[in-house]
Design a binder for these strands. Structure first.
Lengths: 124, 124
DNA sequence: AATTAATGATTACAATTGTAATCTATAAAA
DNA sequence: TTTTATAGATTACAATTGTAATCATTAATT
């Protein structure tokens, strides 16, 4: 029904933290990202606000503090991103996309076996 | 070295036409897209101009007319999109991403066999 | 020759995005 | 109690994007 606004690149970084640690405060997110990102604290707070506005996050307030939680699961959001990527770049053609990934990227023998098993499962 | 500016969603639509039909004129692109897209002609011309500015297209001029061609191959651009998608959504983790695609999407038995064959090739 | 059509260039304009700084209200510390 | 630190709200601002309309130049028609 009401379709999810898009999650931007920067917002994805925030969401990954939230999915991993929710309910999380702004300070939690800031702390978690301090090592990988050069963002100022305010930048992270802005992104949190936008995610709230977009309805991608909710919060529970305890005294002055917000505890943020995701509205949708990571799996659901990833699914949407997969779809939009597949559509945009490959016009929805799944197999060619998979072939490209399989051919170009490195996979261990064990990973290859796992993937083959999944394919075999599917075939039945 | 000099990194490619991003190709936006709308621009991808244009590029697909160019890759398929280059060298192509604006009129060619407009014609090709007329059925699938509701864009005004000017919209397409704007997108072509932007792709030129970004250095994603070049052109050859014959009289008053521009014949547009891609600077990079479709494969190269797709590769970049795959990387950025993989990084953004899966933090670069290839196998989980493949597992999601394989589990969630429909594939014919024949496609499954092809994919398995590619995997087997890789394993050696 | 005057008019019209077509092509590319220029301009427009709001929404989104990246990246913050400043403001405000409260809680904690001195 | 006065000062300070903190959390969230508000404001900022340029770049990108979607989506065109208008302008200028030349080519084609009448």
């Amino acid at each position: 029904m009401d379709e999810q606004p898009r999650i931007s690149d920067a917002e994805w970084e925030i969401m990954k933290v939230i999915w991993a640690k929710s309910p999380a405060t702004a300070a939690d997110v800031i702390h978690t990202l301090r090592d990988n990102k050069t963002w100022k604290d305010n930048t992270i707070k802005t992104l949190l606000s936008r995610l709230l506005q977009k309805g991608i996050l909710t919060y529970e307030q305890v005294n002055r503090l917000y505890y943020y939680s995701p509205v949708l699961t990571e799996e659901e959001c990833k699914r949407q991103e997969r779809q939009s990527f597949l559509q945009r770049v490959y016009g929805g053609a799944l197999k060619p996309m998979l072939v490209h990934f399989l051919k170009e990227e490195k996979l261990s023998s064990q990973e290859i076996d796992e993937l083959k098993k999944i394919l075999s499962e599917k075939e039945k």
